[in-house]
Computed example of a mutant assay.
Amino acid sequence: MGASASVSLCVSLPELAPRCVFGVALETLREDGQMVCGIPLVLRDMVEFLNKNGMHHRGLFRLCGSVVRTRQLRQRWDSGERVDLEHDGDVPTVASLLKLFLRELPVPVVPEPQRKQLLFQVTEVNQSLRENLCCLPDDNLIILSYLIHFLSRVAAHSQSNHMPVENLATIFGPCIFQ
């Protein structure tokens, strides 16, 4: 009886192990309960922090955060800890983490087949971008819409943060389209 209890405990341990959130597929994040309304919790936390604290931060997304601090916060999230960015974060580090999260998605927000199709249809067939975005998987479309709304707010404050649409496109294009 003691051996079977030991085996049972060993079998259930992997289920208790925290799952990473960086470098993880959107489907896995959803299955692990790491998404709310189609948005990864970690992404939502970073965007909310930057909405509150970063809109007027000069050079938002151009200035790199502390490499050590970025690594620490990422490790905490990946180990399943709840990170309080108001207490533990700073604008450049959270901005760096946001870009890192998007870059490390195994499949970009706009995957390669859809990216090619979007570009072809917008340039050659002259269809509207809105019509073509319907070909994205639901999770990707929700996240893309969320990011576009956030980046629009950032661009609206470009007088103080020096991040007009052109700068944001240069920084986030590779993160979203990879």
Rank of each mutant, 00 (worst) to 15 (best):
G59N: 04
L60F: 05
L63D: 05
L63I: 13
G65R: 05
G65M: 01
V67I: 13
V67T: 14
V68A: 08
V68I: 09
R71Q: 14
R71F: 03
R74F: 02
Q75N: 15
R76F: 05
R76E: 13
W77M: 10
D78R: 01
D78C: 02
S79R: 15
S79C: 12
S79M: 14
E81M: 09
R82P: 02
R82C: 00
L85K: 01
L85A: 08
G89D: 05
G89I: 00
V91Q: 07
V94Y: 00
V94R: 00
A95W: 06
L98S: 08
F101L: 05
L102Y: 09
L102T: 10
R103K: 13
E104F: 02
L105F: 06
L105M: 00
P106G: 09
V107E: 10
P108K: 13
V109I: 14
E112M: 01
E112F: 09
P113K: 04
R115E: 00
Q117I: 02
L118P: 02
L119F: 15
L119V: 12
V122A: 06
E124K: 09
V125N: 09
N126F: 03
S128N: 09
R130Y: 14
E131S: 13
N132Q: 15
N132S: 13
N132L: 13
L133P: 03
P137E: 10
D138W: 08
D139L: 14
N140T: 06
L144R: 04
Y146F: 15
L147K: 01
H149R: 14
F150K: 07
L151I: 03
L151A: 05
R153K: 10
V154I: 04
H157W: 04
H157G: 03
H157Y: 12
H157F: 08
S158V: 08
Q159G: 06
Q159P: 01
Q159H: 05
S160I: 01
N161L: 06
H162V: 08
H162N: 11
H162T: 12
M163E: 07
M163V: 03
P164V: 09
P164R: 11
V165E: 15
V165K: 13
N167I: 01
N167P: 01
L168F: 04
A169M: 15
A169N: 15
T170Y: 12
T170C: 15
T170A: 11
T170G: 12
I171Q: 11
F172C: 08
F172M: 06
F172R: 02
